[in-house]
């Protein structure tokens, strides 16, 4: 089995260009389908932006107003009055960065141990870790809340990130990755008298790029978008991340739609921009997760 890293590099893309047209016929049909489908994918985002620049009357007009009479950018300014946007943005960024860094460290170490080290109870521990993947996150909420409260971490960034630092999924991902690496590398080092930590640090860690970037991307998406848990542990609105801020705003009956739409654009914008900048890496990284 080749390593995922090697596979990803697309070494199989051996299709001869010459026979393409013959083998696949015209690409016209593919383009038509994909353009229509892509438009359907993008439509809600476009409509969201249009609504965010409309007046309340235009949002509820019949027929719909596709081109607002004037573009109301002040809807975006109004967002800053109705939610503590910047402090929530800060919280979102903080929790995301902390989770990415800590998860990568913990999951890489544990994943490596589960894949390549021998110790009593390994099977049992791995089974326990994997079992929690199956459990809906709601199951944990009551107890996790109590734990975080007992630790005195309510309303703190530490409280929001705590459970999310320990990821069964990330551990599993890294374990699968290490399983795919050839053993010969380690054996040579072991013969040279390296201890397990040195082997891990010097030989294996430098190879983890694709897996680590896939993990990082997933953690970023998960952390930014997560709602339920931060909602539970942050009782002060300026100590909550953006997802909670937006949900709270949506629950205010008097907030007008364009402002709500503007808030939802602003809330998603950082992650969308990051995605557009890093799209190639993101897509390759995520495709990696699908390879066993």
């Amino acid at each position: 089995m080749t390593s995922p890293a090697v596979r990803m590099s697309g070494s199989r893309r051996a299709h001869g260009r010459g026979s393409e047209a013959k083998r696949y016929g015209s690409h016209l049909f593919a383009h038509i389908v994909l353009v229509l489908g892509g438009f359907a994918m993008a439509l809600p985002f476009l409509w969201q932006i249009i609504m965010s620049l409309s007046s309340n009357a235009e949002v509820t007009s019949v027929p719909p107003t596709f081109f607002p009479r004037e573009l109301r950018f002040d809807n975006y300014l109004a967002v800053f009055d109705v939610m503590p946007f910047f402090s929530q943005l800060g919280v979102s960024i903080w929790i995301t960065v902390i989770r990415v860094v800590v998860q990568i460290i913990l999951c890489t170490f544990a994943g490596y141990a589960f894949a390549r080290m021998r110790f009593r109870g390994r099977g049992l521990m791995l089974a326990l870790v994997l079992a929690i993947l199956m459990v809906p996150s709601q199951v944990y909420l009551l107890s996790q809340y109590q734990i975080v409260q007992n630790l005195g971490l309510l309303d703190t960034v530490a409280g929001i990130v705590a459970p999310g630092l320990f990821s069964a999924f990330g551990t599993f991902l890294m374990r699968q990755f290490f399983l795919g690496l050839p053993v010969e590398l380690e054996e040579a080092a072991r013969l040279d008298g390296a201890n397990p930590f040195q082997i891990f640090w010097k030989i294996m860690l430098p190879l983890t790029g694709p897996a680590v970037s896939a993990l990082a991307i997933l953690v970023v998406l998960f952390s930014w978008n997560e709602l339920l848990w931060p909602l539970v542990v942050s009782t002060r609105s300026d100590a909550a991340p953006l997802s909670v801020g937006l949900a709270a705003l949506a629950g205010v009956p008097t907030v007008n739609y364009p402002v709500l739409m503007a808030a939802s654009v602003l809330t998603m914008a950082p992650i969308l921009i990051l995605f557009i900048i890093l799209q190639r890496r993101v897509i390759e990284g995520l495709a990696f997760t699908g390879i066993k």
């Binding site: 893309r13 299709h15 260009r17 393409e20 696949y24 690409h27 593919a30 383009h31 994909l34 489908g37 892509g38 994918m41 993008a42 809600p44 985002f45 969201q48 998406l221 930014w224 978008n225 709602l227 997802s243 937006l246 949900a247 949506a250 939802s264 654009v265 809330t267 998603m268 992650i271 969308l272 995605f275 557009i276 799209q279 190639r280 993101v282 897509i283």
Partner: peptide, 25 residues
Amino acid sequence: RPGLRFASLYRVLFFLPYIAMPVAI
């Protein structure tokens, strides 16, 4: 399909819903 132009643009478009915040969208 090999040689399809704009393939990465299509991938990005179809991937947009996945990164959108569920509450927002």
